[in-house]
Design a binder for these strands. Structure first.
Length: 423
RNA sequence: GUGGCUAUGGUGUAAAGGUUGCACAAGAGACUGUGGCUCUCUUUGUACGGGUUCGAAUCCCGUUAGCCACCCCA
């Protein structure tokens, strides 16, 4: 078959076999967020373009080439949200949440959009969940945010991820360190790759992330940022390390963990699942102390992370772990002959009203094919209504696991099923 | 955005320019009221649009989509 339409590049239909996994994970993740005291927030799918430009950073790849931006009928530039933090901060300011409480712990989940070349683990419409703590500057928050990510991954069976931890400094020490990089790289400028030449001017810190061999060679001589942090930042990072050790979360200090969004300050971290190819980051996050001010609020500190659903599911599949997903059907109603259809249909709805899952074949299929169907649906009990049963005002109840059959009075079917299925 | 690889029933795979075959899945039956196992039968395909050729799944071009690497990020 050649359908007239197909989904756009980088977008996917999540079919029942997959959506079962999605719902399971979403429930599990929401549950953990709630246990940690986070409340859900839902923000619109699109915002003014300027919000993302201001928050993510003019010079970043996301803003420069990866946004789904369009003009609406009033000639406003709008953008499909490429990430979750900026909208949350916007909502926090717009709704003046800070007047109701100094501290907010929020979580979200949903679709996000980036115009990139798709690849396994990278879609144009992808799905993230995330958490933000607004209003507290304390290493305990950073540590808890990291622990939260750790626990989510662990509780779904991904307990062998690597945690990378770093710091991008603060306005006190970052400019100084950028000078160190620039000074060190000055004499090699002509040999740098094109990207690094640009970064040299725009954002020297990003050079540390370069994969080019020549650049890497020279960058090795640059002292690690973790050695050049100001006393405050150094202490802050050390306290997070201390708390993570307390919580028995293994981590690795990465001197050059630079993230692609400009708003980060101090803490940055990433959970990596190494067997996933190039798209290995499952969860990424950090502290963003000046974003709220940048978007027009007071200077409120904040910290958060986001995790990628598609990647987590890919990792889970790679692990070949069985998820405890139940797709069993409680009851399948089998009918024989036109006469019995009505009673079967009525009974079906009664069973459902009684709180059990039930289905039937709406076609007049053979008994055999109805049973085959019941079997495929992993049915626990089959109810059979035929002419004999109709005459005697009874139905046959068959336990599909044991094969046992018994005859039951019509009036008692629902209660008998309940007795067996609902504990 | 750059480079490379790929596209055959619903799914997974064969056919080295000459009849699109197999397995699984799906449907019907093998007992005139009973599923899983077995057996039989049936349905369904060369991604789309051009070109080369007597003849194209096969060669060429374009489109679309997927994959891989770069880039970036969740």
């Amino acid at each position: 078959m050649n359908p007239k339409f197909q989904s756009l590049r980088g977008t996917n239909d999540i079919l029942p076999d997959e959506s079962r996994i999605w719902s399971y994970l979403e429930d599990k993740i929401s549950d953990i967020f709630r246990r940690f005291g986070y409340q859900e927030i839902r923000t619109p799918i699109f915002e003014r373009t300027e919000l993302f430009v201001r928050s993510i950073g003019q010079a970043t790849d996301i803003v420069n080439k990866e946004m789904y931006t369009f003009t609406d009928r009033k000639e406003r530039s709008l953008t499909l949200r490429p990430e979750g933090t900026a909208p949350v901060v916007r909502a926090y300011l717009q709704n003046q949440l800070y007047t109701k409480d100094e501290v907010w712990k929020l979580y979200y989940k949903g679709p996000f959009f980036r115009y990139e070349r798709p690849q396994a683990g990278r879609e144009r419409q992808f799905h993230q969940f995330g958490a933000e703590v607004l209003g507290v500057m304390n290493p305990a928050v950073d540590a808890e945010i990291i622990y939260l990510g750790y626990l989510i991954l662990k509780s779904i069976g991904l307990d062998n991820c690597e945690l990378l931890l770093g710091s991008v400094g603060c306005p006190v020490c970052r400019p100084g360190y950028e000078k160190v990089i620039v000074a060190e790289m000055k004499e090699h400028y002509s040999e740098l790759c094109d990207d690094c030449k640009r970064r040299y001017k725009d954002n020297p810190l990003r050079m540390l992330d370069c994969k080019n061999d020549t650049c890497k060679k020279y960058l090795k001589k640059v002292p690690a940022f973790t050695e050049n942090l100001c006393e405050y930042c150094k202490n802050y990072l050390a306290k997070i390390e201390e708390l993570l050790k307390l919580l028995e979360v293994p981590f690795e200090i990465t001197p050059n963990l630079v993230r692609g969004l400009d708003y980060y300050t101090h803490t940055t971290f990433e959970f990596i699942y190494p067997h996933l190819g190039a798209q290995a980051t499952l969860i990424g996050g950090g502290r963003y102390n000046h974003l709220i001010e940048e978007l027009g609020g007071e200077d409120v500190p904040a910290c958060g992370f986001a995790g990628g659903m598609e990647r987590i599911i890919a990792a889970l599949k790679n692990e070949k772990k069985q998820l405890p997903i139940s797709d069993e059907l409680d009851v399948f109603v089998v009918h024989i002959g036109t006469e019995c259809f009505k009673s079967a249909f009525q009974l079906l709805q009664k069973i459902r009203s009684g709180g059990m899952s039930a289905d039937m074949d709406y076609r007049e299929s053979s008994l055999k094919s109805q049973f085959r169907r019941a079997d495929r649906f992993k049915t626990r009990y089959v109810i059979i209504i035929g002419e004999d049963e109709l005459k005697n005002r009874t139905a046959k109840l068959k336990n599909m696991k044991t094969g046992d059959e018994e005859s039951i009075k019509s009036d008692n079917i629902v209660s008998e099923l309940k007795k067996r299925l609902i504990k």
